[in-house]
Write a protein that binds this DNA or RNA. Sequence first.
DNA 1: AGGAAATATTGTGCATGCAATTTTTGAATC
DNA 2: GATTCAAAAATTGCATGCACAATATTTCCT
Lengths: 223, 223
Amino acid sequence: MADERQTRTEKLAGEIADAIIDGSLEPGTRLDEHMLAARYGTSRTPVREALRKLATTGLIELRPRRGAIVAEITSQQLETLFVAMGELEATCARLSALSMTPIERRRLGALYEGMADMVVRDDVEAYAAANVSFHTLFYAGSHNPVLAEMTATLRRRLAPFRHAQFRAPGRLALSHAEHGAVMRAVLTGDAAAAHATMLHHVSLVEDAFEQLAPSPASRRQAN
Amino acid sequence: MADERQTRTEKLAGEIADAIIDGSLEPGTRLDEHMLAARYGTSRTPVREALRKLATTGLIELRPRRGAIVAEITSQQLETLFVAMGELEATCARLSALSMTPIERRRLGALYEGMADMVVRDDVEAYAAANVSFHTLFYAGSHNPVLAEMTATLRRRLAPFRHAQFRAPGRLALSHAEHGAVMRAVLTGDAAAAHATMLHHVSLVEDAFEQLAPSPASRRQAN
DNA sequence: AGGAAATATTGTGCATGCAATTTTTGAATC
DNA sequence: GATTCAAAAATTGCATGCACAATATTTCCT
């Protein structure tokens, strides 16, 4: 067994974050400290510390003396997040075009080829998973861990709002075509094109989201 | 008097961060929880929560069961931070070129003009302060609070390492010339040029730093 | 009956204490 | 003199408890 060096606080932060990201805890849900402590079998202290940590990443909102809730978001804030996400992804793509190693470039090409099959089979599950890998390649390919970490954090923060991303008809093929443009730019080392195509790609994702979830407020009514 | 709604934890986080940024707490300094609690007149609980918060911003390093230290940094990590900083600043400049309001553009021009005097008078203090304002205008001008916050966080994280920034001879005039190039690109709405010139400007800052502090390891020997 | 004030309840903010781990100190051995 | 090991001290991780603020509920008045 691996060394159990994680503190309870860290483990809690991870588990709560996962629950938010996979949708078990929906935006707006109240995060009662006693409840969480009871559910995870600890005292309130590590729960509180975990909540502070998640608050700085933006996954939850911490209102002094009024408790924590899973971050809700206005459509305006959501747009801001998507724009920031797009700029960071585009920057990662730009740096990737400049500094990916031959091995990384080969991996990128191979993943892209593999995703073509998933489009043909219309395998949304597999494509969604591969899509995460695809984007993660650029984070790593930027060869800048700070930028990569920031981008990944932003991605997690948006995760609760993009579950239906690939359900719109025709999204898979469109996404794949976009990926192709980004990939070619990166493989040929065209930094400006890499930036532009990735920016375009991510803004399309935003559009797809807007179509599927016109207003986050509707979610609240489902309570 | 303003509403005293801040919790002790938040106030502590701010004060400790300030102490790190202005250099009172140097990189590598051990942050003993008892000591901090005593110094600020509270118990360890809010201190611990403040430390967690600072750890997520990267200002301090939290080693499980081994306490916290003010983040030290290898020259390689420093370069990574500067590159990330440059990319974010450049992105803010790019967005500013696209979306600054007329009022914001006028303010930018006015600040730039005012800084010319400081260069002539060789007033390093005033220039350093105005420089922060200058860059902050682009954060706001991006009209993207998420991006602005990320960039500002990164700037704070680098603050402990850039104290001597403008001491190198001729830096002030060079910096001002660079600012002029960025400003003209933004005021004319040339997004690509704004990105490029800001990127260039920030990489020069990095060079200036490298000259003044060839190796952060030397700091440690001063203990 | 509707609304405002008062009260009860719930939940957060913080202090304190204990157990476990890490670090330091000291001695003994090579 | 250096190195290794063990015991002591220091420091973190976590649990518990209490006070106060925020919210929910009830009561009272118009």
